[in-house]
Design a protein around this nucleic acid. Structure first.
Lengths: 202, 202
DNA sequence: AATTAAATAGACTAGTTAGTTTGTTGCAAG
DNA sequence: CTTGCAACAAACTAACTAGTCTATTTAATT
């Protein structure tokens, strides 16, 4: 049984390092050898654990990205009252990790979507599924916000969810080559202004 | 002098076809041969007109993209009164071309920025310059809108500009693999809601 | 028609990549 | 201790890529 444990540990390590490099340089601009060099492993090890580069990447999406999206963008809402407040916190937290140039998952998704769109239907489909999870969660919480009296019941939850996801991914893109700190400040400022249009005045 | 004309025509054709393929498949995932195949031209022709693949791409940015960004996102503002109205039209027009799966330039910029970031500083610098032109134009027109009494003079023009660019690029990204028509509708709807927070009530 | 240079063709080089294959090591069970 | 297999090493293959080089075609000028 020890063997199995070691196998899991190695695979986990490979996926973790793989994600970091894929995220930094892009999937197509990262060779299997690049990842293996960082891992101090050989081709033999790689193809022992994974059938192909694509399967390796898919396993990363399923085992790492999916979980992180859940814990960063979905879990925070549980048991909370006012979705607008949580949204504010959630997005600001995400931008904070982005500001420190760390790997934030909303952006990881949009990055890979850009790269794989039109090239690999399997991966695109997976990415869309993860996006959907994020979107559905937003919509659900906005609806709950309506019944709880926080969100104006005239607002279109679907549209708000799309708008929030869009603006977040867009600002995240600008942050890559702009002034992250300033952009984060500006973004949150305008986001709050936007929130006023969907919340109930008390 | 006829030679010079032909040269120009060929280069123009190469750039036009090149952009279409680079946009569709990405720069790094497009070989020079891919472009030449579409053009029915040979390696000799390519390297007669351009020094390298990179120089070819840069010439596309300078000669095509820059001009289009100007004509689509900047020129429409000239001689107009209410910037909020023009903004609405501008972004909706851009999304309309996007809806028909055509090449819209705000998105072209964000796509290439994602691809080149961290890989080619020269290209990134150029892209940033084009972004800057867009941003400066937005800010200028928002400021003008203040003095003309259309925009609330308390709003932060810089922040609004960033927020608009962000949300646009973000929704454009979602449109690639979502329902473009629906997303466009939702986006414009929320955008108008947002505009209410920055315009002067009359 | 002959000349000349621009424009193009396409074989070739050197380097890279995903994936294969064959061989080696380490460790647990018999 | 030795057998057997999991886990890895690394040389190798085949396909692809940017860029070079030489030969050929095209078209304007004399």
């Amino acid at each position: 049984m020890e063997k199995n444990l070691k196998r899991m540990a190695t695979m986990q390590r490979m996926q973790s390092v793989g994600l970091a490099i894929f995220y930094k340089n892009g999937y197509y601009d990262t060779s299997v050898d690049d990842v293996l060099k960082e891992l101090s492993l050989s081709k033999g090890a790689f193809y022992y654990h994974f059938k192909s580069k694509e399967e390796f990447f898919i396993s990363i999406l399923q085992n790492i990205i999916f979980q992180k999206v859940y814990s960063e963008l979905i879990a925070p809402f549980e048991g909370q009252e006012n979705p607008a407040v949580i949204l504010d916190k959630c997005l600001d937290n995400a931008l904070e990790t982005a500001e420190h140039n760390q790997l934030d998952n909303g952006f990881v998704l949009s990055n890979f979507m850009t790269e794989f769109s039109g090239k690999n239907e399997t991966v695109v489909k997976l990415l869309k599924e993860i996006f959907k999870v994020w979107e559905v969660n937003l919509i659900t919480n906005l609806q709950k916000g309506k019944t709880d009296g926080y969100i104006d019941r005239h607002v279109d939850s679907d549209a708000v969810a799309s708008f929030l996801m869009s603006s977040y991914m867009g600002v995240r893109l600008l942050m890559v080559e702009g002034n992250p700190k300033l952009l984060r400040y500006k973004y949150i400022q305008q986001l709050r202004s936007y929130f006023k249009t969907i919340t109930v005045k008390r």
